[in-house]
């Protein structure tokens, strides 16, 4: 565990040197400052008392969560886009000649090395999202004097979405020793494939006539991580404290993560450097 932690912290240091995450932290800080300024001009006291007296706590929750999501949703998407870009080179950099030789000459197993790199990437995204979400939550909660901790679950769901995409990035990093294939696959899943498959499942399935095509699309839908659902419906429900009816997108995405990480470790263990 100690070795994994050393590599995790080292990856965090690498990310800081990369500046992309600092850039995102800067954007988050700017958004938080703007939010403070904007909300300082909004009079919420009369609104608060009206809501409390009229027993409309549900409306209050929806309003607060709505404002929070309005700020956090686009920024968490941006965070994922930047995180994919910045973290795609973590594994290929580690595998560069002269670097991997040194790392493998130390008393650390290959599993620990790869897992350390993986958790390092997750830690970077977690810290960025944590800063943004907790910042927004504190500002809005203070302003409306309404504290709903459900919104903080956004930190976990965004980090989990990145964890799933990052497992694919790590896999392609291990097999190709290049950052480009992993980055392309992650962007393709996140921006195109997952939203299209969700559209197929929700809207297009009834209008498709061929059974074979439907079977193929259903198969792809279950294999591919469901980032559109994770970042969409599931995030909204969890953030507003409502129960999630269907955990299938979380479970199948988790299976994808386990499979990709497992196969990456298997290949990495067998590789000659």
């Amino acid at each position: 565990m100690k070795n994994i932690w050393i590599i995790t912290l080292f990856t965090l240091r690498e990310a800081m040197a990369r500046k992309v995450f600092l850039f995102f932290a800067g954007i988050s800080a700017l958004v938080l400052i703007c939010s403070i300024l904007i909300f300082s001009f909004v009079d919420t006291d009369s609104f608060n008392s009206m809501m409390m007296h009229s027993n409309e706590k549900m409306m209050m929750r929806d309003l607060v969560t709505g404002i929070e999501m309005l700020i956090v949703n686009p920024l968490s998407g941006l965070c994922l886009l930047l995180a994919i870009f910045a973290s795609a080179s973590f594994v290929p950099n580690m595998l560069e000649k002269g670097n991997i030789d040194l790392l493998l000459s130390k008393p650390i197993s290959r599993n620990q090395l790869l897992l350390g790199k993986y958790f390092g990437g997750l830690l970077v995204v977690f810290l960025n999202i944590f800063f943004l979400v907790v910042g927004v939550w504190l500002i809005i909660s203070f302003k409306f004097s309404y504290w709903d901790f459900s919104f903080l679950s956004v930190i976990l769901i965004v980090t989990f979405t990145f964890a799933v995409l990052y497992s694919a990035i790590v896999f392609f990093g291990v097999i190709s020793r290049s950052s480009i294939p992993g980055m392309m696959v992650a962007y393709f899943i996140f921006i195109i494939l997952s939203p299209v498959l969700l559209l197929y499942k929700d809207k297009l399935k009834p209008v498709i006539s061929g059974d074979l095509l439907k079977t193929v699309l259903d198969g792809i839908y279950f294999i591919i991580p469901k980032t559109a659902e994770l970042m969409g419906e599931i995030t909204l429900k969890l953030a507003s404290g409502r129960s999630v009816d269907n955990y299938q997108p979380v479970l199948t995405s988790l299976l994808f993560l386990i499979f990709m990480l497992g196969i990456s470790i298997f290949i990495f263990r067998k590789k000659d450097f």
Partner: peptide
């Protein structure tokens, strides 16, 4: 081990390089 073409992260200084590899070596 000193490899033939060793590569250290360019953003680290000598103390940080030695500290990282020292910790990895226990």
């Amino acid at each position: 081990y000193l490899p033939e073409n060793h590569k250290y992260p360019p953003y680290l200084n000598a103390v940080e390089v030695l500290s990282f590899f020292g910790k990895l070596s226990g």
